[in-house]
Amino acid sequence: MQSVPSSSNDEQVEDHPIEQVLLTVPPTDDPTLPAFTFRVLVIGLSTCILSSSLSKFFSFRRNPIAIELVFFQLLALPAGRLMAATLPKRLIRLPCTSWKFSLNPGPFNIKEHVLITTMAKGSYGTASNIIVTMKAFYHRPLSPWAALLLMLTTQMLGFGFAGMFKRFLVDSPYMWWPFVLMDVSFYRTINEKDSRPKGMVSKLQFFTLVFILSFAYYIIPNYFFRSIGSLSLACLIWKKSVTAHQLGSGLNGLGLGTFTFDWSTVIGFLGSPLALPISSIIHSMIGFIFLVLHHHSNLILVQ
């Protein structure tokens, strides 16, 4: 963000060239709120282990279930408030040092919440797929220490590149990320006090309503009516054609002309289309078409 002088006083206020960022991200900060606390270490490490385990377990499904960050955001909030209500507030001194810390520095705040879910998100995208591929397809098992070193080096390599390009990808006000704005809006909704306008619902009430409706929407295609997860026009028209089933089936074929009402199928590979701008979705579609055409032309040349 860019700082510009305020017209009313000498204080600095935040400005941003992107309207969506201005409407979502607060321009001020409270430096008195503690961030890296004992609660963050305990809950953050626990959610980190849980998120990596669940995401890898569900990735082997035919239609992978995406463990969204909102699951760990909702999990961290009651856990943090429970620790804030039960842990003692006295200071603890580390042996042989002068460093002191408190198990309970005060109410659970938004900074702790963000840091915990950041730790949970950091466990995504590790090199575990390489380990699984080597064991399943090449029958080359890795020792636990070699596998751990492989995962750590790939993660650190990614963080290193992020630090190298921080000037262009983070500091630039024009590099804004739609999914981050969703997270910011969510944090503010459940952590900040919101007054309900007369005749309307508050942000938290609206979130609760959407949460209940989305839960019901997930239950229907996954448990009560699984066939709407993959509907193929080709298979419905040519029911006895093997070729039509090979081309049109979304489960055992190429999925041409297939559509779905299952939201977990929609977001299983590319994420939520509600958060991405239409230009980003179109670019991804164009890239996918060129990739398929490229592979098709290579197959023709090989034959």
Rank of each mutant, 00 (worst) to 15 (best):
L87F: 15
L256E: 10
V42A: 09
V292A: 10
D30Q: 07
S241N: 09
R90M: 08
M1Q: 10
S53H: 10
L75M: 13
S102Y: 06
S280L: 13
Y124W: 05
S98K: 06
L75Y: 07
F261W: 12
T32W: 09
S241T: 07
M1A: 06
S284E: 14
P173R: 02
E112A: 07
M134D: 11
M200V: 02
S230F: 00
H139E: 13
S102N: 09
P26G: 03
S214I: 13
K166V: 09
A127P: 03
Y138M: 05
K198E: 15
L150W: 04
L149D: 08
L77K: 02
Y124C: 13
L142S: 03
D15R: 14
I300W: 14
L33N: 03
V70I: 15
A146D: 11
F36Y: 08
L82N: 01
Q20D: 13
P105W: 07
L22H: 07
V180T: 05
A85K: 03
P141M: 00
A244W: 08
K193V: 13
W238R: 03
M164C: 06
H113I: 02
I220W: 14
P31R: 05
I18L: 08
T133C: 11
H294A: 14
S98I: 05
V4S: 05
P105A: 03
L94M: 12
Y124T: 11
S172M: 01
V42S: 03
F71C: 03
Q205P: 00
G250L: 02
V25C: 02
